[in-house]
Design a protein around this nucleic acid. Structure first.
Lengths: 345, 345
DNA sequence: CTGTTAGCGCCTTCAG
DNA sequence: CTGAAGGCGCTAACAG
């Protein structure tokens, strides 16, 4: 493995000149530049990342924090990850995957003290997130995909849950639906103040209130049987429900089973909208689901770009970015056929 | 940020003694050990990963190679990734995500020359994989999740496609099915010699031959419409098909649509088995799919453990591990109800 | 069992 | 515009 000294010797310049040529830290005469790069080429020289990091105090390594899969990462989150990796690479950074249990913040603290990573991007953020508190106190550079209850001074990208839920509700209302239910993530995640669970539910409450509709909500574990139950429970509260919005992808098959057992068919008798749900998941079921599709890749990308921007510019003002989801109409929604009162279920 | 020198001073020992105490490279008297660790504690000392790596020539960083999502990573692959990250962490390694286009092996070569990573684990391996050739020639440490046509001297974990396909075929045959079709990944992936696509198809050919059954196969893009088409095409080749095996998760909704349009219901009139398919995907459709479920997490884990073993022991013998998939019977398979000849479709 | 010291490969003031 | 030299924080001989 050739070193900078080898390059310098071959190019007949001082070692430091090679360094400057590589980093562009200082103007170098075109002629010597040429010689240096030729020498690098000839030797197949690659700067040693560790040495460079040690000397410059910048490793150009970022960490992506995701909690150990409790709910389990879905396809949506997978896209965060790959997009984040791509964005990092495009900016000449490396991305390490750091799966941290929410409890073990000591591990996180160690990570920030090892000098291995220049910054972290946190995903799956909770309203009161120990990780975020820790990073903040330590004044360690980071950005979030998601946001806390109080995110002053922190860069983040998140989904605009108000927009998403409101658009879904409005869309269904325009189709004539006036009894619209919402199936949320689990009680456990709500209690843990998982951002999307709390925000979407609040947004739903606000949206139906503004629309003059009842607030029909269930929290639901991420599994088909739980979806089935939630659906049944909603229907016994109000048998005239004709449409349902959910963010809980894994509950969907159970919900659909409940619908079909009622003798209803989708979308003729019942409409279903999956919010913050990727096309991949939407197309796994029949009929394919109308969704509010999240800009997953963009979120992953922006998450790391925000961090890099903060790292590289002394820029202190923070960016708070809320991204909308896009309504994609597929086969699971249609006009309301049943009258508001008196369901025939 | 305290350094080893600070610790040494506080503990009243030489700097190197601290190093030895930390690494256990050399026996240290219990007493001074105590003092040293107390000092570390007091200062909140954390060794600098970069400096350590530079001096020891071992970064304790591994890279996970996955091609930029062409087919797109599915849930199964996501589990590789998280399991790999966990396994790395348990062994005190970090895992960087390296999304490399198959073509740009130069980027990969650079990675191996930067001294940033001690080794790589490659996923989504093709039978003739440039990345693998490069790593091999460079004599850079690596392991594979998957395997090449010729994998002499390389550690790998892969799925035992022969077992998987054979078990699926046998299972269906026992249910009385004698016209069993196979829907593979796309022609493009087959042409690219993507391991699973080639091996599963070959395994299917062998399995049906041994069972005295016809070899009914289609390659199919990863999308519902393609699945629909493939199903139609298979049925026009042999209308008496009563069961189908597929590895192409995303084609499944199309296949199921085709089945239902025939007026058939699952599993009464037609049986469907998804191989190398996770429970997550299987439970997204109705009825839930009978699958041959892959040990995804184990593969990710073993992939990195193999690499670490090679890195840490001079051990030169290679491990070639083939893992079986487990048959999970759900609602998409049942006894054959239609006679072998003369379908009434 | 403990100390001293020379690097690891690069960056970055300094002086020229 | 270029060169010399001192670190960055740690490891691993080499001496005791």
């Amino acid at each position: 493995m050739p070193t900078m000294a080898d390059v310098a010797k071959l190019a007949n310049v001082a070692l430091s000149t090679v360094s400057y040529a590589i980093n562009g830290t200082r103007p170098i005469s075109e002629e010597t530049r040429q010689r240096i790069f030729a020498a690098m080429e000839e030797l197949g020289y690659q700067p040693n990342a560790l040495a460079r990091g040690l000397a410059s105090k910048r490793s150009r390594i970022l960490a992506l924090l995701f909690p150990a899969p409790e709910r389990g990462l879905g396809i949506t989150e997978l896209e965060f990850v790959t997009a984040a990796a791509d964005a990092a690479k495009e900016n000449d950074y490396n991305l390490i995957l750091w799966s941290s249990e929410l409890k073990k913040i000591d591990e996180l603290r160690e990570l920030t003290q090892q000098g291995l990573v220049d910054g972290v991007v946190a995903m799956e953020v909770h309203l009161h997130d120990k990780r975020i508190e820790m990073l903040r106190e330590a004044d360690f550079p980071f950005s979030m995909i998601g946001r806390c209850a109080e995110s002053d001074g922190i860069d983040y990208v998140d989904i605009d849950f108000d927009q998403v839920v409101r658009e879904a509700v409005d869309y269904l209302k325009e189709l004539g639906h006036t009894r619209i239910a919402f199936v949320n993530h689990s009680q456990a995640e709500y209690d843990a103040e998982y951002g999307p669970a709390v925000r979407a539910e609040a947004a739903f409450a606000a949206a139906v209130k503004d629309a003059g509709l009842p607030n029909l909500v269930r929290r639901c574990r991420a599994a088909p049987p739980a979806g089935y139950e939630a659906f049944g429970s909603l229907l016994s509260e109000d048998p005239s429900i004709t449409a349902l919005i959910t963010m809980n992808e894994r509950a969907i098959p159970g919900i659909m089973l409940g619908i079909s057992e009622k003798g209803w068919s989708i979308p003729d008798d019942f409409s279903l909208v999956a919010i913050v749900s990727s096309a991949r998941a939407a197309e796994m079921v029949m009929p394919a689901l109308t969704t509010m599709e999240p800009p997953s890749a963009k979120m992953g990308r922006v998450g790391v770009e925000l961090l890099i921007r903060k790292l590289e510019s002394g820029d202190q003002d923070t960016a708070k970015i809320l991204l909308p989801c896009r309504l994609v109409i597929r086969g699971s929604t249609g006009p309301c056929r049943r009258p508001p009162e008196g369901a025939h279920g």
